[in-house]
Amino acid sequence: MNNFEPKIVAFVCNWCSYAGADKAGEQKLDYPANVKLIRVMCTGRVDPQFVMRAFRVGADGVMILGCHPGDCHYRNGNMKTLRRFRLFEKMLEQFGINRQRFFLDWVAAGEGKKFQEVTTEMTERVRNLGPLEIKGFVEREVG
């Protein structure tokens, strides 16, 4: 398991977290190359099906990073994401996917350090969980 390199997809909003990732870059704060970003204008755009698709086509972990509550560029898209994905997390286990493989948090444009931390922690967490194996929706990874 030690050689396992998890694949992690992070959906980030254009205004805060994508800029936060850029900030990490400007400050040369390295984090695992396992994490690859997909930009959306607002985390409110992240359809739960995007996350499911990512898991189905090979992601071992999926992150959604958006603006802090109150900072959303589109007023409250992040809060809608929060509500949507709290429900989604519960469903995830029904699909046999450990909910620790999914992570939702807020990273501001200035929080390069936080971006480094959450992506590093996520990579370690998923590395410890091992590769995600989905053989149809009936097989379960969790109790």
């Binding site: 959306v40 204008m41 607002c42 409110g44 755009r45 992240v46 359809d47 739960p48 560029h73 589109y74 898209g77 809608k80 949507r84």
Partner: peptide, 10 residues
């Protein structure tokens, strides 16, 4: 519309 895409996700 400002193009946040929340409707498309919902």
């Amino acid at each position: 519309c400002r193009g946040c895409g929340t409707c498309a996700a919902s």
